[in-house]
Amino acid sequence: MLGYIDKIKEISERVLKEGTVEMVIGFQKGTLPMMNEPCFVKCSGDVQRLVWDSNCGINLANYLTDRKEKIAVIAKGCDSRNIVTHIIENKIKRDQLFIIGVPCNGMIDKSKIASMFEKEIIEVVEDQNNIIVKGEGFEETLKKGDVLQENCAICIHRNPVIYDELVSDMVEEQRDVDRYEDVRRIEEMEPDKKYGFFDDLLSACIRCYACRDACPLCYCPTCFVDESRPQWVGKGQDPVDIRTFHFLRAYHCAGRCTDCGACERACPMEIKVRTFTKKLEKDCLEAYGWEAGMSLDERPPLDTFRPDDPEDFIK
């Protein structure tokens, strides 16, 4: 995956020079270990700013919403699925985009890695399969496979589903992955236990809405929690208001979420916010055989009707 960057730069430079696009959206090197910052490049001389490594977990489809320019965007498997969703939902047009597809090996989980060390991490470098973590008086090599973001570890669509040019050959998809082990564990609980489980899950929430704002699906001009006429949800720290935000936001992503993990990565309080969306993802797969963002030609389950849609919940 490290070798991708030369190809990314080459393509970016070409499409900018040839005038195919007005800007390239990608990542530049961050100022902290395990952080890169989304950025745009408008002139071909600036493509040297672009980087690619295992710290590009932010979903770049989020930066395409309602843009008018012609844009080249660097897309991992999940980003590409969100680009498909964006196109289906008319948030951008296919012919505005030049998609630079990146077959992905997964992004690393910065919180998990930070929690493995007592001391502060000063530098993180990587080679093909290893992550080398350095700090004051220590240096340790971790297997990349052991420190992937949780969504990446169970990802079965690492290759872009839509692209104009690929930066490398496709990577092998993971097989025999149990994507919903954690969802089933909750499903087996009694109602009160479930309720308590989510109370604990959300107890640290400060309502910064980073999960929502990092999500490419959350592009409503006014989110329901920000609505004041009428005001649907209280704005304080009441746990019921906090839960209402999380579960309704998740519901708004039903049949659209690609499990890109941007929400969880963005959370400053390390809340596993995917716990909500994964249940919906599992149900969509089981009830409608649906995975979001896989094809431009199929309408999402919640805006179509099929005679065989399950309806045993209706009396």
């Binding site: 950025c39 930066y63 309502r207 910064c208 704002d213 704005k235 400053p268």
Partner: peptide, 22 residues
């Protein structure tokens, strides 16, 4: 460009003092 307009920076900041009354 990269900002997603979440409230993280302001909420974790010790010197941010703005409030809203509800």
């Amino acid at each position: 460009f990269s900002c997603i307009n979440c409230g993280t920076c302001t909420y974790v900041c010790p010197t941010c003092w703005c409030f809203d009354i509800q």
